[in-house]
Amino acid sequence: MVKLRYIFVLLSILFLFQAHYNDIQITYPAYFPEPVYSFENNKLDTSVISLGRSLFYDPVFSSDSSISCANCHSPFSAFAHTDHALSHGINDSIGHRNAPGLFNLAWQKNFMWDGAVHHLDMQPLSPIHNSIEMNETLAHVIEKLGKNEKYTTLFTNYFHDSIIKSEYVLKSLAQFQLTLISCNAKYDLVKQNKTDFNEKEKRGYKIFQQNCNHCHQEPLFTNYKFANNGIGIDPDLKDIGRQKITKHKEDSLLFKIPSLRNIGFTYPYMHDGRFQSLKEVIDHYCDHIEISATTDVFLHKKINLSKNERVELVSFLHTLNDTSFIFNKKHHYPN
């Protein structure tokens, strides 16, 4: 009997030990490229992911505790801010740009529309400190977290440190965001030979490959570069895009090429949310390209699509909507 008890104690110790080292890996289809995120410096752990998830939905990040990450990055719109051309911040301030969807971030090298941020870990610093977004400081957020027993216990358990460090907060948020992988759209099922496109989608796919794939490259539907897509500058916002960061004239009006995955959930479109529908977007590319010094060379040649072809293209684009992604409870507000 005593022996059995020993074995039981030993087994529980082993189990506990394992719980601390349950490194997990993200899974993605074979046709995806290798992720670029430096996982070796932030090994995924289910507990840390869940901590990151709690933080993502916690308004503690804003100075008046009114706004969490999820306010502008809602799971039901693939973590974008649907219906808002420009995202809202604290005290109903209106931001300068349209909050993009968050998914497949492990493959993304640059963050923000102008690529101001070069690493996923560091991205939250920007909205937290922005006076019209969360208007807070990370130092103060950590002070607030330190007074919350739920968080002090979680951080101590996972990071084995009596104090909460910015590194832990940033890495937890990154871990949760890294798990936001969208790879179950109809497009993916077709790729995996589990289903077929219908005729309309098939024709749309062809049109896509001929006209859009140059920048919105499969299978992630972006090449993660920057381009001026000829929408011209908004006279009120006067947003010069990438040039603000690189200070190169040739980067004037260049913005990050967004992924087209989940495009049906992430309207309105463009960095300033100026287009409400995919029809408007396609009409822009076909009929209203503004050629300036930095407009992408690929767009200099007119894209000629008939009315029918435009509808077919939209049909294909909707095959990039990943419903299982937006309804994945693991991504939602934690209970």
Binding site: N41, A116, H119, M122, H129, S166, E167, A174
Partner: peptide, 22 residues
Amino acid sequence: NYQGAKSGDLDPLKGMYWTWQS
């Protein structure tokens, strides 16, 4: 700079890290 979040002297809270541009 490409390694992500760090602690100690490299903690971004030391006032030696830009927030609007990383």
